[in-house]
């Protein structure tokens, strides 16, 4: 049961991140995903300082507001403030992350939130924490978030698709570009916050971008893109955890390395054998 909860939690995060990450990658927003995964830290720390626990559902939902706040700031710095796009991203997420670290080291010392878990998460303690209806609370929260995301994406698929593929055309149909882009970033921000505690800031971005990039390598159809991305995420999490247990190394970075190796191998395979390794349907 111990490993089961860890693998389940990782897989739920993988489903969630791969799904949203696919659209981030297609919209060339990978680095916004990177920024989000760091920028939510102060939100999480403040939620923790107020509620005294790390898994409070509503507190975490509030914390994801920091993600949206960061996006707005980046946008503002870029459009109104006159900074370049990359610079705006770089300035805002480092600032918010720095604030988060300062809060942790000065205010939340000795609590069960520390800088190490910020980076790597502590998925291995998942089975030990309090349970909600028999499921570890973080996992339970993630399941709910994932179901919501799956519903929104399956109904809104057309919207995400057209605003990513051809913005100008979407606008002429009267489709609101900001609505769809904030919907995507909002969902990403919420998912990031709930995944953060388990896998940490760096792997949140890995799970957002690597499965989608893998799918990008081997398919050119949107539906198979999403399916492959999610499957890749799930398989990587299971294999990553098993390898980690085998070699007695931490789970989360092993998942990252596993995903990286598969991606790079596929890429080498593709350069050696062009026209192969493409999923047609």
């Amino acid at each position: 049961m111990f490993d089961f909860w860890i693998i389940l939690t990782a897989c739920i995060i993988a489903i969630n991140s791969s799904l949203l990450g696919s659209f981030l990658v297609l919209k060339k927003l990978s680095l916004i995903g990177d920024a989000l995964s760091h920028a939510v830290l102060p939100g999480i720390v403040i939620a923790f300082l107020i509620s005294g626990e790390i898994n409070s559902f509503w507190m975490l939902l509030g914390a994801s507001g920091f993600g949206i706040f960061a996006i707005l700031l980046i946008d503002w710095l870029n459009r109104v403030g006159g900074f370049g796009k990359d610079s705006s991203i770089g300035i805002i997420y480092t600032l918010l992350f720095a604030v988060g670290i300062i809060l942790i080291t000065s205010k939340a010392k000795n609590a069960d939130i520390d800088v190490d878990c910020v980076l790597f998460g502590d998925i291995n303690t998942t089975p030990l924490v309090d349970k909600t209806v028999g499921v570890p609370t973080p996992t339970f929260n993630l399941i709910i978030i994932t179901i919501i995301n799956l519903i929104i994406v399956s109904f809104g698929l057309k919207g995400f698709k057209i605003t990513s593929f051809d913005k100008g055309f979407a606008q002429t149909l009267g489709i609101s570009i900001p609505f769809w882009s904030y919907l995507l970033l909002g969902l990403t921000s919420i998912s990031t916050v709930y995944s953060f505690d388990s896998v940490g800031a760096i792997m949140v971005i890995g799970l957002l971008v690597i499965p989608a990039s893998f799918a990008n390598l081997i398919t050119r159809k949107l539906k198979s893109f999403l399916v492959i991305s999610i499957l890749f995420g799930i398989i990587s999490c299971i294999s990553g955890h098993l390898l980690a247990v085998l070699f007695d190394i931490p789970t989360v970075p092993t998942i990252g390395v596993f995903m990286g190796l598969i991606l790079i191998t596929t890429l080498i395979g593709k350069t050696l054998l062009p026209n192969k390794l493409e999923v047609k349907a």
Partner: peptide
């Protein structure tokens, strides 16, 4: 350069994979 993966995604991939390798080494 060798694939459809855009530069921004390539950056995100590189940083998370390399960092993971680092964390494993650190653990060892």
């Amino acid at each position: 350069k060798t694939s459809r993966i855009k530069k921004d995604a390539a950056i995100a991939i590189t940083l998370s994979v390399m960092f993971s390798v680092g964390v494993i080494f650190l653990n060892i």
